[in-house]
Write a protein that binds this DNA or RNA. Structure first.
Length: 793
DNA sequence: CTGGTAGTTCGGTCA
DNA sequence: GAACTACCAG
């Protein structure tokens, strides 16, 4: 499965020879499908879908309710464009949010038109396409086209460095929150200079803006981009270079956007630039305002609500026929969502049976809730349902534990979606860091990650020293390590370690040309002592980690070389774990969007948990409406049965709290709902297993503090910004400081000069060799040191 | 530099 | 209640 990024980005630049190219093959494919009888691709579409597929000219918004065949419309539309010869595969820009969606779209287009979908280089996620564009025009963004993409982990470490360099107390201003803020700015399309003063004041007494600028400057030095840059930089490039933008205008005959309700400002701007309001731009956005659940991540429902104002003359097509859920389920969901204001308005129309009513079940506590759901699952299973057809959708991931415990006890197979992803695991990231270092010796963040993994006696202090050397000599850390191994800044032990390490890397890098990259990876993991480290590890998950490392090497096979693999990994790569077995799916409501199951269990419908108190505190009414949309998404995942639960007592942060049923329960229409009680609730003082299980909560609940006031008492972000802002330095100042620092230190010394060294004291310079000095210290004797460690007395 | 302990924090999630 | 971090002692 080739990722678009794995192919060189200029592949599609050459137009195919007239008549013989990919487009012709595409058409042939469609023709085959058509004459093959199995179907004209338009067959089986309802009138609205058909219209959405065939309305090719001008801006089009398809409002596709849950389960109305949205993906089908998108893919058929692409097939239609290709079949009618309106564009070649490389002239269609199709963006999704997730890799999964992109993959699915690619597969389904391929099913319609044949393998040509592989020839669709511009079908992908916002980020993968942004990467492609940025690599092509890297020099316009002050980067090399080989730039590395930082993930959240790298980002945090980088920010930590900046904070400590700026002497900012990490306790009061954690790197996380700055990362969060920067992310937020980037989501809103703001470069450091555009950050409004009020916003910048939110961090470190008004220094947020300058720190953001410093962070950006560091990224350029490291030849790196974070996820936000993958969109922001192309936007800037387009704005500053109309000729570049013009190339893309000429190229893209059609633009398609999936899940438009989830676009943030940056993505919106990016799309606006690529599809200007005027001219024959054929932009088709598909989305559902009722399923916008990522406001906290910067998504602007507004984008979809004002589509026809942004693109005058836009046509709006509503898909309202729902093929997924039975009538009772849709009735419940529709009535619930009707409590939201500011909707575009859509009514899902059921196509099938009434089915079963939505059930609402109350339990004493979360344990009982888990038991009664597990019982229900077993009973459905006895009646012949597959576990694969069941899902439990929770609001917050801490709710999952209770279910996992229960499933383990009962021996019910289950899978969790959305845990730490494969490539986010520690061992995978470590292994990747080694590979990144071999791929590019300038990858400082990767180097820093593995310099002391496994333990080599190279701790914080050593890394600090190396950083100092790297900064003053303006070389990457790897080079700094090589330098430091020859001088006497460090203790012999550390120098020895560094020497071995850098020599190893040198060897590996040389070997990388001649070897197969999978073998190279194995060799590196072996010789570095990394696999050995896990073999020695006694913790229970060590074996699994070794297994993961093997899996990593295996997954490299599908790539031609190391470079291609690393590119893929930074953007894509998720583990397709255990799809084959029959198991209940456990995941958050957010993760469930776009999926469907026969039986859906929705536990934890309690005030404070769902709707989440925190969301309501932060975003008020808008927050509540987003929670309601989340509830709507949850219910509409169900095809046959939707079962809702709430518990009277729940342990939160280790403390038992009593809770009241969610207001969303009151918003469900009576005629579609059946209220039941957990069977075990009747045996409160009784017998059987439940007595045992209930003992504990009963006792503890006497200590229960009522309600959610405590959570409310905690201030939101908004409080922080007020009252500060005494200092407001522009970003240029801080950049100047950074530059000044590194150049000032670079000034070298003459022989015979007196110098002072923090560790060795006063001395006289005997020799100067680049930035290395031989100094005769008064007390410490002759030492080789780097010039930035001494100063004039 | 390492390993232990004490203190803190605790939302969802995609690249 | 647990997991992660930061600090401290060896």
């Amino acid at each position: 499965m080739a990722d678009p990024n794995a192919v060189p980005f200029f592949d599609d630049d050459e137009p195919p020879a007239p008549g013989g190219g990919i487009a012709a093959r595409a058409m042939a494919g469609v023709m085959r499908a058509r004459t093959g009888g199995a179907g004209d691709y338009l067959e089986g579409l309802n009138p609205e879908q058909c219209e959405a597929v065939q309305t090719l000219d001008g801006p089009l918004l398809v409002l596709a309710g849950a389960g109305t065949g949205k993906t089908r419309v998108l893919t058929t539309r692409i097939a239609h464009i290709l079949a009618t010869g309106r564009a070649r595969p490389s002239e269609i820009l199709a963006v999704t949010f997730t890799n999964k969606a992109a993959r699915e779209m690619k597969q389904r287009v391929a099913a319609l038109v044949g393998d040509v979908a592989e020839g669709m280089p511009w079908l992908g996620t916002f980020h993968s396409i942004g990467t492609r564009m940025l690599r092509r025009h890297a020099e316009l963004a002050d980067l090399k086209s080989s730039f590395t993409i930082l993930d959240t982990d790298d980002q945090i470490r980088l920010i930590k460095q900046i904070l400590s360099a700026e002497n900012i107390d990490e306790k009061r201003w954690p790197a996380r929150s700055l990362a969060w803020a920067i992310d937020g700015w980037k989501n809103r399309g703001l470069a450091p200079k555009d950050v409004p003063p009020g916003d910048g004041a939110l961090f470190a007494n008004g220094r947020g803006k300058e720190l953001y600028a410093a962070y950006q400057a560091r990224l350029k030095v490291l030849n790196a981009a974070d996820f936000g840059d993958l969109l922001l930089e192309p936007i800037r490039i387009f704005r500053e270079n109309p000729d570049v933008l013009e190339q893309y205008h000429r190229r893209f005959k059609f633009i398609l956007v999936d899940e438009y309700q989830d676009t943030n400002v940056a993505q919106y701007l990016w799309l606006r630039l690529l599809a200007p309001a005027s001219g024959p731009r054929n932009l088709c956005c598909v989305g559902d305002d009722d399923q916008s659940i990522y406001g906290w991540r910067g998504a602007e429902v507004d984008n979809i609500l004002r589509f026809d104002k942004d693109f005058p003359g836009a046509k709006v097509i509503r898909l309202e026929r729902n093929y997924r859920s039975d009538a009772h389920i849709l009735g419940a969901a529709s009535h619930l969502i009707s409590h939201n204001e500011g909707r575009l308005g859509k009514t899902l129309r059921p196509q099938g049976e009434d089915g079963e009513r939505v059930t609402v079940t109350g339990s004493w506590d979360s344990g009982e809730e888990a038991r009664s759901i597990a019982d229900e699952i077993e009973s459905l299973q006895r009646k012949g349902s597959n576990l694969n057809d069941m899902a439990i959708l929770v609001r917050a991931s801490f709710q999952m534990r209770e279910f996992e415990d229960r499933f383990v006890t009962l021996g019910i197979d289950y899978r969790v979606i959305g845990g730490p992803r494969f490539y986010e695991r520690q061992e995978i990231r470590d292994a990747l860091a080694y590979l990144r270092c071999v791929n590019s010796s300038a990858d400082d963040l990767a180097f820093e990650r593995i310099v002391n993994v496994p333990k080599r006696g190279l701790g914080d202090a050593t890394v600090q020293t190396l950083n100092g050397i790297a900064r003053s000599a303006r070389v990457p850390l790897m080079e700094a390590a090589r330098l430091a191994a020859d001088t006497e800044e460090l203790k012999p032990k550390q120098r020895e370690s560094l020497k071995t390490l850098t020599q190893n890397f040198q060897r590996w890098t040389q070997a990388s040309d001649a070897m197969k990259h999978t073998e190279l990876a194995e060799m590196i993991l072996d010789e570095s002592g990394y696999t050995e480290m896990w073999r020695q590890d006694r913790s229970p998950d060590a074996a699994g980690r070794l297994e993961n490392l093997k899996e990593l090497v295996r997954s490299m096979e599908t790539f031609e070389n190391l470079q291609g693999f690393l590119e893929h990994v930074s953007l894509v790569m998720d583990a397709d774990s255990g799809e084959h077995m029959d198991a209940v799916t456990l995941m958050t409501l957010h993760a469930a969007k776009g999926l469907e199951y026969d039986n859906v269990f929705l536990p934890g419908w309690e005030e404070g948990l769902f709707p989440s108190q925190r969301t309501m505190d932060e975003s008020g009414k808008a927050g509540l409406e987003e929670e309601r949309r989340l509830a709507y998404v949850g219910i509409t995942r169900a095809k046959r049965r939707a079962k809702i639960y709430f518990a009277s007592n729940r342990r939160i942060h280790g403390m038992w709290q009593s809770s009241i049923p969610s207001r969303f329960l009151d918003e469900l229409p009576e005629n579609h709902v059946e209220v039941t009680e957990a069977p075990a609730a009747f045996s409160n003082r009784g017998f059987g297993e439940s007595r045992f299980d209930k003992l504990e909560p009963f006792q503890n609940s006497t200590y229960t503090t009522p309600g959610w006031q405590r959570a409310q008492a905690r201030g939101g972000f908004s409080e922080r910004g007020t009252g500060f802002g005494s200092r407001r330095g522009g970003p240029t100042i801080i950049e100047g400081e950074l530059v000044a620092k590194s150049t000032a230190n670079a000034a070298s010394y003459d022989t015979g000069e007196r110098v002072f060294h923090d560790k060795f004291g006063y001395g006289e310079v005997l020799e100067v060799e680049g930035n290395k000095l031989l100094v005769a210290f008064d007390k410490a004797g002759h030492k080789r040191v780097l010039d930035n460690f001494v100063r004039r007395p």
